[in-house]
């Protein structure tokens, strides 16, 4: 209510975008009779690394997937990189592609295209989405492969490289489109700890480059040391939000304390 009042001055949608790169207001979503997002509002500033944690089934991934409309919410409003979206209405194709152009995504299951080489995986979207020439796309791809430490794997097929390497390629593929924000949906959950570390290392580097990131994760060290905005979700709502260090050391809610001690001591 308080926030509603704060923003109701100009436009009656509860949003004020320039200060924030990603802004969600009262996002509501059902899966059948299951109320998975209960009017969630979230603001992420440019360059911020926002980690979203919480028990499974809390709605973390669903919330993240609403940002690029892989899930369509029932209602709410959103501004992403200056583009306003009324979530209650279906978005036209053009605006949808525009939105996705601004937002990159990395999945838990990597989702590289298995019939294309590593290089083609990164180059094809650049050519199709940005209209880059084959040469420009290739140059950009190789530059990014260098950045994620996989220059020697350009010609490999995804099934021939490790999970951690696949995920680094997936990050490069998303970065190649020069998004304004990146979404990471449990990027290390399918990896064993050692491979997870190399992916986290790349993510840390991406964060350091100034990229705005929304990360659904169980990696508390990443959330604490790399993240500068922590969101705790439970049962379709954000229950606590703020500075990661502060929440991890002095959670306001008993529920947050419980959850943190469960994941940190496991």
């Amino acid at each position: 209510m308080e926030e509603r009042k704060r923003y109701s001055g100009k436009v009656d949608i509860g949003l004020k975008s320039p200060k924030y790169l990603v802004e969600l207001a009262k996002v509501d979503k059902h899966f059948g009779s299951n109320h998975v997002l209960k009017g969630v509002s979230l603001r992420v500033k440019p360059g911020e690394v926002c980690s979203i944690i919480g028990p499974s089934g809390a709605g973390k991934s669903t919330l993240l997937r609403c940002v690029n409309l892989l899930e369509s919410p029932d209602s709410g409003n959103m501004v992403v990189a200056g583009q306003y979206v009324d979530l209650a209405r279906p978005l036209d194709k053009r605006s949808l592609l525009q939105l996705r152009r601004n937002v990159g995504m990395v999945f838990q299951s990597f989702n590289l295209f298995p019939h294309l080489s590593v290089l083609e995986n990164i180059s094809l979207p650049q050519r199709r989405v940005l209209g880059r020439s084959a040469e420009d796309a290739k140059a950009k791809s190789l530059e990014l492969l260098e950045r994620v430490g996989l220059a020697d794997k350009a010609e490999s097929f995804p099934s021939k490289i490790s999970g951690g390497q696949q995920q680094r390629v997936a990050i490069a593929r998303a970065l190649a489109l020069e998004p304004k924000a990146m979404l990471f949906d449990e990027p290390t959950s399918a990896l064993d700890p050692e491979l997870a570390q190399e992916v986290l290392g790349v993510m840390k580097e991406v964060a350091a480059s100034g990229m705005t990131m929304l990360v659904v994760t169980h990696e508390m060290n990443f959330a604490r040391n790399v993240g500068n905005h922590l969101v705790v979700m439970e049962n379709g709502s954000i229950i606590e939000e703020g500075d990661p260090e502060q929440i991890m050391t002095e959670p306001k809610l008993e529920r947050t304390k419980q959850f943190l001690s469960a994941v940190i001591n496991h």
């Binding site: 690029n68 996705r100 990159g104 989702n111």
Partner: peptide, 14 residues
Amino acid sequence: HKGQYEAGEALGLS
């Protein structure tokens, strides 16, 4: 795999 459709969509491919 469903993830292939989603990856294509998330990349903004037509």
